[in-house]
């Protein structure tokens, strides 16, 4: 995998503070009293068994759900700015249109999410170099996941919400995700990552959060 190092780029310093966060799915309380703070360059690693509420926590942070209790405060952003426009979301639903080519996909999401490095550079970084002309429908599940990761590169944003980022990826893919994350944190970004696989992140500033079994 060509690993051309990106130009050092500083992301706006943003902090996230959660206090007494609780979420409920149906009648079940998934978690409550959750406190954490994230500063620039920090990664929140969310682990826990299935059904513990990892994805729900990410959706809370993304603003797609409202918390049952507690507060989520973003520091360092304008009063009237939408926090959504600062975040990248990566989940198992990759939003890939089979009939668009890889470069069309990236060009579209760059237009939607904001300018940044060009598509070829991003495809190289995720190991899809030279396939920009291909229709995305011909990619395997792992390759589609890589394409979804390339979207995070073409529009730099300070917050990454990653839901099982290494799902469907091979060992080399795991290393690639770890490298991308390390770069992102190095540029002063925040990341929240729900995973049950160990990520090879040496020297990263990791806040660990283990969600328990559902009560």
């Amino acid at each position: 995998m060509p690993n051309a190092h990106p130009k050092p780029l500083q992301l706006p310093p943003i902090r996230l503070a959660a206090a007494g966060l609780a979420a409920r799915r149906g009648e079940r309380l998934l978690f409550s009293g959750l406190d954490f703070t994230l500063a620039p360059g920090q990664l929140l690693l969310i682990t826990g068994p299935n059904g513990a509420g990892k994805t729900t926590l990410l959706r809370l942070v993304a603003g797609a759900l409202t918390p049952e209790d507690g507060t989520l405060v973003w520091q360092g952003i304008d009063e009237d700015a939408r926090p959504q426009a600062l975040m990248h979301l990566l989940s198992h639903r990759t939003a890939i249109k089979p009939r668009l080519t890889l470069s069309e996909d990236l060009a579209f999401w760059q237009a939607v999410n904001g300018p940044g490095p060009d598509a070829f550079e991003a495809l190289d970084r995720v190991g899809l170099g030279g396939l920009d002309w291909l229709e995305a429908g011909l990619l395997s599940a792992g390759q589609q996941r890589r394409l979804a990761l390339a979207r995070l590169i073409v529009s730099p944003r300070p917050v990454w919400l990653l839901d099982e980022p290494t799902a469907a990826l091979d060992a080399e893919g795991d290393a690639m995700v770890a490298a991308l994350l390390a770069d992102h944190l190095g540029q002063g970004g925040l990341a929240l990552c729900a995973t049950h696989l160990p990520l090879a992140l040496e020297g990263a500033d990791i806040v660990r959060l283990r969600l328990g079994a559902p009560r």
Partner: peptide, 16 residues
């Protein structure tokens, strides 16, 4: 051919 370009054989990893 496009399909094979997307999924190269393990021993023929060369990209165009």
């Amino acid at each position: 051919m496009a399909r094979r370009a997307a999924r190269p054989e393990p021993d023929a990893q060369a990209t165009p």
